[in-house]
Design a protein around this nucleic acid. Structure first.
Lengths: 196, 196
DNA sequence: CGTTCTATCGAACGTTCATTCGATTCGAAT
DNA sequence: ATTCGAATCGAATGAACGTTCGATAGAACG
């Protein structure tokens, strides 16, 4: 059923945009219905509940995020892999409106059970960066987790300050942030401190 | 009126804890009343509205955050100033339960007018780090904003991965993150890329 | 003792919420 | 021509929401 799928995606688009703008709890099913040009009852033909809507929206966002960083895994040089990962991650955050906010702010609003799958996915995504950093600096095993946290922080915070006019296009910003991180990471700051 | 003030602070404590745990929109006035051991009507003797409660809570959090980083301004050496700022900021984020979440997630839920004052305060706080970094590397003027964004990201993200058993105490983590950032910043990664 | 003021409450108000029900339209299949 | 299922809707349901009202208890004060 092609029409059904199209409508379904449109509805998730509307929900995603509203969750991103106002947050999950501040968005009502009536808001979503209005944005998707459907009645409230009609909405329930496509979505079993508001919780499930959030769950579906989160999965979709993760799909796109992972698709954007998948290129990284195909590279062999660790430095290039990191650069590609940062680029893919940052591209998603700084385009696609502000839908990343759903993951960052509203994931905790998921029920504990529905949460499980998505939270595992988040952990896996985080771990992929930890592994990447471990490959980059094998001596830094124990510190890769902290470094990955620091790098994700740098990236996930970017939407709050990034302005294209002042900071250049997204890929340029990604390259600068990669360099900033790599100089600190390579210098072994984390390792040196850890051994004290 | 001493009893009044004490009760008032208790109520804001309860509201702050609930906002931090569940988010502003997921917290009801009934939740706050229950946590503060007062009736819902009694709550309105102390708070004019839920919006104002959020506003008061945000101001209080900013007060504490600024008090924790105020030491930094009294130092003269730029490196020590940065270290003190990072330490103060991180101390607040990683203790005080998770009340920082209110600023990070719920500030946008403030009305536009009430928002004004608090948002200005946020900008001032951000700018104080930009100034600090400019003093640290005078050649980097234009990049201080980006560097400040990157550093704030590293710090604000820390609560998501920090574990005392694996990462040492808060001051040690602050020192390691400062080093990580400084090595990247001093190496001029941002400046070099900017001139391309 | 009577009055006023502070702090508190139960009960209600009107609104909005997520969700459900029964009915209807309409193209496709029998 | 009749049946059927997919897609849609208006209207309702009960619960929860933020907020207000009128009353009350007791301390403070004249």
């Amino acid at each position: 059923m092609q029409a059904y799928d199209q409508r379904y995606e449109d509805i998730l688009d509307s929900a995603e945009a509203l969750f991103a703008q106002q947050g999950f709890h501040a968005t009502s099913m009536r808001d979503i219905a209005r944005a998707a040009c459907i009645s409230v009852a009609g909405l329930y033909y496509y979505l079993p509940s508001k919780q499930q809507a959030l769950s579906f929206v989160c999965e979709r966002i993760f799909d796109r995020l992972e698709a954007g960083t998948a290129e990284s895994a195909r590279l062999s040089d660790p430095n290039e892999r990191l650069a590609a990962f940062v680029r893919g991650h940052l591209r998603y955050l700084l385009t696609n409106n502000r839908s990343y906010r759903v993951l960052l702010h509203d994931l905790q609003a998921l029920d504990r059970d529905a949460n499980g799958s998505t939270r595992a996915r988040r952990r896996r995504y985080f771990q992929s960066l930890v592994d990447l950093l471990t490959a980059l600096a094998p001596h830094a095993e124990e510190n890769a987790r902290m470094a990955a946290g620091a790098l994700f922080g740098m990236l996930n915070w970017a939407p709050t300050w990034y302005r294209e006019d002042a900071d250049g296009d997204v890929d340029a910003a990604a390259e600068r942030l990669t360099e900033l991180f790599l100089h600190g990471f390579r210098s072994g700051a984390l390792v040196a401190q850890a051994s004290l």
